[in-house]
């Protein structure tokens, strides 16, 4: 990816001085980089329950940012075109393909990755059911699927089979044939229902 800094003042030299000043003002008003060079974005957001600040090249995808800068490698990339769901994260509770988001887009948002699911070493019930039901094989699709299920069950604690399928249809698994994944999700829903 190419990151080019832009200086509109220079490139549009034919404009009047007053116009140029207005241009600069407009452009600056929507930047957050104090240096004014726009090379890095000052990103503030909540990651797995903690406030985080970072300087990030704005064209870096959220996926790369999480993996390389935050060193959270549980979020996987496999197709980089939104067709496999391996890179799912939850943004304000909604599942999103982090390979299709640029890091600055999560400014002031709440991001949960697979690493943020287990609390004080206690696995989330969905994680536990994936393990118990044998829904984990190679494991590469697992974090994305667990987050898809998490989002689904947060919105709907008793999904029908059709609703489960709609909630999980964006995640490709090449190993398991999905049967055990579906069972794990359904059992997690049951277990969560019992808790309530």
């Amino acid at each position: 990816m190419k990151t080019k800094a832009c200086h509109p003042e220079r490139s549009e030299g034919s404009q009047s001085f007053g116009r140029r000043r207005k241009t600069a003002e407009i452009l600056r008003s929507a930047q957050n980089d104090k240096s004014g060079k726009g090379r890095l974005w000052s990103l503030k957001f909540t990651l797995n329950g903690k406030k985080v600040s970072a300087q990030v090249p704005p064209t870096r995808t959220l996926l790369d940012f999480l993996r390389l800068d935050m060193r959270l490698t549980g979020t996987k990339g496999a197709c980089l075109e939104g067709e496999c769901g391996s890179c799912y994260v939850l943004v304000d509770g909604k599942p999103m393909n982090s390979c299709l988001m640029l890091a600055p887009q999560v400014q002031d948002r709440d991001v949960t990755t697979i690493e943020g699911l287990a609390h004080s070493k206690k696995l989330d019930v969905i994680q536990q059911k994936f393990i118990d039901c044998g829904a984990v094989q190679c494991g590469y699709c697992t974090p994305g699927l667990i987050l898809a299920a998490k989002a689904l069950l947060a919105e709907n604690s008793h999904p029908t089979r059709e609703e489960f399928l709609a909630g999980m249809e964006g995640n490709i698994c090449r190993c398991t044939g999905y049967n055990k994944i579906l069972r794990a999700c359904e059992q997690a829903a049951d277990a969560m229902g019992l808790k309530k």
């Binding site: 990816m1 190419k2 080019k4 832009c6 929507a30 704005p58 064209t59 995808t61 980089l80 075109e81 939104g82 393909n97 390979c99 299709l100 988001m101 640029l102 600055p104 887009q105 400014q107 002031d108």
Partner: peptide
Amino acid sequence: FLAGGTDLVVLMNHGKAAPENFIDLTH
């Protein structure tokens, strides 16, 4: 303009687009 990124960022990931400036509409 950048919103969902479901077209633009795919192209970027494939090295087929590198916009000079982004106007993020998601906020």
